[in-house]
Simulated assay, not measured.
Amino acid sequence: MHNRILKGALLGLALAGMSMSAQAHRGWLLPSTAMVEAKEPWVTLDGAISEGLFEFHHVPLRLDNLTITGPDGVTTKAEGAVLGKFRSTIDIRLPKDGTYRLAIVSNNVMGSYKLGGEVKRFRGVEGTPGAQVPAGATDVTTSTTHTRLETFVSANDMNDTALKPSGVGLEMVPVTNPSDLRAGEPITFRFQLDGKPLPNFPFSMVPGAVKYRGTLGELRFTTDAKGEAKFTVPDANMYWLSAKFPLETQKGPPAPGAKRYSYTATLDVLPQ
């Protein structure tokens, strides 16, 4: 069981099947802070999958595919992550002042085919050997899941260059800079799918430290006709934002040919 869950973590497939129940395992990135003010700014980033948000007690989330988009809009691959028993961790230098996007994006494929009279099933990251269908296969059915998991950090200043959407998959576009979120003050986010706004689209935010509250404390919001949501959160905390498209109406594997999209972000909300 442990190996199966860990393998799912490596591929990002575990992220696609997460629910908002209190017992669900969630994948998350956790920055040491959302705003660094220093002459030579650095941030430490942890990644894990756990039942309790921001608690290290299950399996690590690999950071092999972590990318860093800097204040100038240039995206680079993160290097030097360390894989531990319950978490992965990496120290990231922030050489330019402004806002950074730290993200793991993947396209996962699962399906089945018939070869030599036998039905075979497969799953893997799109473009890798595990997701390939061999020549001669028939009755091929596939479904794909696009996942984006991210967080944001600013060094000495804030700007919005790294916040521009890619136009691919399910994305949250911060109108309010995610390094400047405060309890009780208006926050505005926009959601879009493949570059198009998502009107009347629901998403949720769950504050950390659930074990100290005894309740999940989930906050639910919905975008307006333009795909934007303007809202407040009552308390300062580290929050886990989650959204999926299409909305889940039933459990179990996706239908053949289906496309699913999953988005999660860790957001640091400070006191007023």
Rank of each mutant, 00 (worst) to 15 (best):
P95N: 05
T89A: 10
V105S: 04
R93V: 03
W42K: 15
T44G: 06
K85E: 09
T69E: 06
F86G: 02
Y100G: 07
L94Y: 02
G111D: 01
G116R: 00
H57S: 14
A103L: 05
V43P: 08
P60V: 02
G117A: 13
V74F: 13
D46A: 08
P41I: 04
L94E: 05
L45A: 12
E51Q: 10
A103N: 08
L61T: 04
T69C: 13
D64L: 02
D72R: 15
A38Y: 10
V109N: 01
M110D: 03
T89M: 08
T67M: 15
G111T: 00
R62C: 13
S112Q: 08
A78C: 11
A103P: 03
S50I: 00
G80L: 08
G111E: 03
H57L: 07
L94S: 09
I68W: 11
K96E: 14
P71N: 15
P71L: 13
G52N: 14
S112G: 05
F54K: 08
Y113R: 11
V43I: 09
L83N: 07
N108F: 06
V105G: 06
M110I: 02
F86W: 07
F86S: 07
V43D: 02
P95K: 03
W42H: 13
V43C: 08
K85T: 09
N65A: 14
V105M: 08
D72V: 06
T76K: 13
V105C: 04
D97K: 12
V43G: 06
F54E: 08
Y113A: 06
K77E: 11
A81R: 05
G80K: 06
L61E: 07
D97G: 15
G116M: 01
E40P: 09
D46M: 12
A103G: 10
L61I: 06
A38V: 12
V105R: 07
G117I: 00
E40I: 08
L61K: 05
E55G: 07
G52H: 14
K114C: 12
L66I: 00
L115C: 10
L45V: 02
T75M: 12
T75V: 09
N107A: 02
N65K: 14
P41L: 11
F54V: 01
G116P: 00
N108V: 05
G70W: 13
T67Q: 11
D91M: 03
M110N: 03
G70V: 09
P41F: 00
G84Q: 04
V43S: 07
T44W: 08
T99P: 01
E55I: 14
N108P: 00
A81F: 13
L102G: 05
P71C: 12
L83F: 11
R62T: 13
K96M: 11
L115G: 13
A78D: 06
G116K: 04
D91A: 03
P41S: 13
L61D: 06
V59G: 06
